[in-house]
Design a protein around this nucleic acid. Structure first.
Lengths: 112, 112
DNA sequence: AAAGTAAGTATCTTAAAAACTACTTGTATT
DNA sequence: AATACAAGTAGTTTTTAAGATACTTACTTT
């Protein structure tokens, strides 16, 4: 079946890449695939992200209902971010991305 | 198997999204998945792309050996762009992206 | 009481991506 | 001879993403 025959097919590529693309979103999602993480955990793992950027990205992912923010403990406040039930569907996508990347990194990636 | 356990796993997400991401690259690749296309064909299909942007994107994809430029006819010049053998491996990735997108578009996409 | 941690917010600046406009070379068409 | 098409290039401007820096609130630990 041809990809482009489905009229909707192509624009959707752009839409998905808006969600997952950019410098951080894919990485954030990848980290949340395994288990929920707190704000500062993410900040530490993604070693060069700033608070403001991380906040922005998380809010965006919340807005589109892929990630949810859970207040785990009120005082002192502890917040965790996790994939929503719906967001979990993204795991397969992330997995394929990683597999493709690992397989083709030698040929393709300029940097490193 | 946990995604983040593979140390390389996460950074590679960013690398792959650099290749495929951005406003146009994913769409260009999706169109080339089915069959080769000429410059102006792509320009027409991707209705709002400018020549200079299209050129830049194609040059980038050539650089990383995912797309190749073939001069089909010399005079008048006709050029076609196609996935390299190696580039064809991206089809599976594009397919998954489209599938995920089609399945989740109602919930997720703000615009449209 | 002072310092530190968690989870941010607010503002401004910089850098990178994409768009806009115009031009080019060679050929083919009317 | 003039116009149009194919496949671009060149330079500038606009838009968007990301980074830098500083500050905040409500606790907890020393």
């Amino acid at each position: 079946m041809e990809i482009t025959n489905k009229q909707q097919g192509i624009k959707v590529v752009g839409d998905v890449l808006d969600i997952v693309g950019g410098k951080w979103r894919g990485q954030i999602l990848a980290h949340l695939c395994d288990n929920p993480k707190r704000f500062n955990e993410l900040k530490t793992i993604l070693s060069n992200i700033t608070s403001s950027t991380l906040t922005k990205e998380l809010r965006y992912l919340e807005d589109i209902k892929i990630v949810e923010r859970n207040i785990v403990q009120d005082t002192p406040i502890i917040v965790e971010y996790r994939l929503t039930d719906h967001g979990k569907s993204i795991k397969d996508l992330i997995k394929i991305i990683i597999e493709w990347g690992l397989k083709h990194r030698k040929i393709v990636f300029k940097k490193n």
